[in-house]
Amino acid sequence: MLIGEPYWRREVPDQETAKSCGASGKDAFLLLPELIEQFGDLGFDIVEMVLADQDSWDRYQAAQWLNLRRWLDDHPDDELAGEVRAELATEPARYTRYQREHLGWGVFALMGR
């Protein structure tokens, strides 16, 4: 099983910061050690783990925004175009202001026990 999961890079200072990262609250994501323990509690062994550092995750995020922009250029009249346009207008600034500082990202390969 392959799981992509965000985790808090450090203790989140308040609910407002958590919500600005797109989370429902401070408990929405775990710190990395707690996340790994949770996989074990669910009966899985981690057999591989790839964590994105801030620079490599920035490249991933930027590629997503480029893909959204290209899609929008090709489908300007699609029913989702307004939603995509709104996301492109707000997400890059929100990401750099909050997510980059507080969230980390990992891809975990798991095997059942």
Rank of each mutant, 00 (worst) to 15 (best):
A28L: 11
P33V: 00
K19T: 05
G82C: 09
S24E: 13
L80V: 12
L68G: 04
A63R: 15
Y98V: 03
L88Q: 02
L66T: 13
T96H: 13
R70M: 07
W71Y: 04
L42F: 08
Y95N: 05
G112C: 14
M1A: 06
G4E: 10
E79W: 08
L35S: 12
E91Q: 14
D14C: 11
S24W: 12
G22Q: 06
G25W: 07
G112D: 01
E37V: 04
F39M: 05
L42D: 15
D74C: 09
E34K: 15
S20C: 06
W71K: 03
A93H: 15
R97P: 10
R59Y: 08
R69G: 14
W65P: 02
L31C: 09
G82W: 09
L35K: 13
E91F: 00
E48W: 13
S56M: 07
Q99S: 11
G4S: 12
K19Q: 15
A63F: 07
D73L: 12
L32G: 11
L103K: 03
W65E: 01
F44T: 07
Q61P: 07
P76E: 05
V50A: 04
Q38N: 13
E16D: 14
R94T: 09
K19A: 07
E83F: 00
R10M: 09
W8E: 02
P13H: 03
Q15H: 05
D78H: 15
T90M: 05
L68V: 02
D78F: 10
R85T: 05
D78L: 05
E87W: 06
L88K: 01
E48P: 00
D77Y: 12
M49L: 15
V84Q: 00
W71E: 04
Q64R: 08
E101F: 01
A109V: 00
E16N: 08
M1P: 15
I3S: 03
G106Q: 01
W71G: 09
P92M: 05
V84L: 04
D53N: 13
W57P: 06
D55K: 12
P76L: 11
L88C: 08
W57E: 14
P6W: 02
Y98T: 12
A23Q: 10
V107M: 02
Y98I: 04
A52D: 14
L103S: 06
L30V: 07
D77N: 15
I46N: 09
D58R: 12
Q38D: 13
L68T: 08
H75D: 03
R94N: 07
Q99E: 03
G4K: 04
V47N: 08
E91P: 02
G112Q: 09
Q64E: 06
E37M: 13
Y7E: 09
E5F: 01
H75L: 12
L32Y: 05
Q64Y: 04
E101I: 10
D58F: 11
Q38M: 04
S24R: 15
G40D: 05
L42C: 11
E37C: 12
T17K: 01
E5A: 04
L68I: 08
E83K: 12
A81Y: 06
E16Y: 08
S24F: 14
G112P: 01
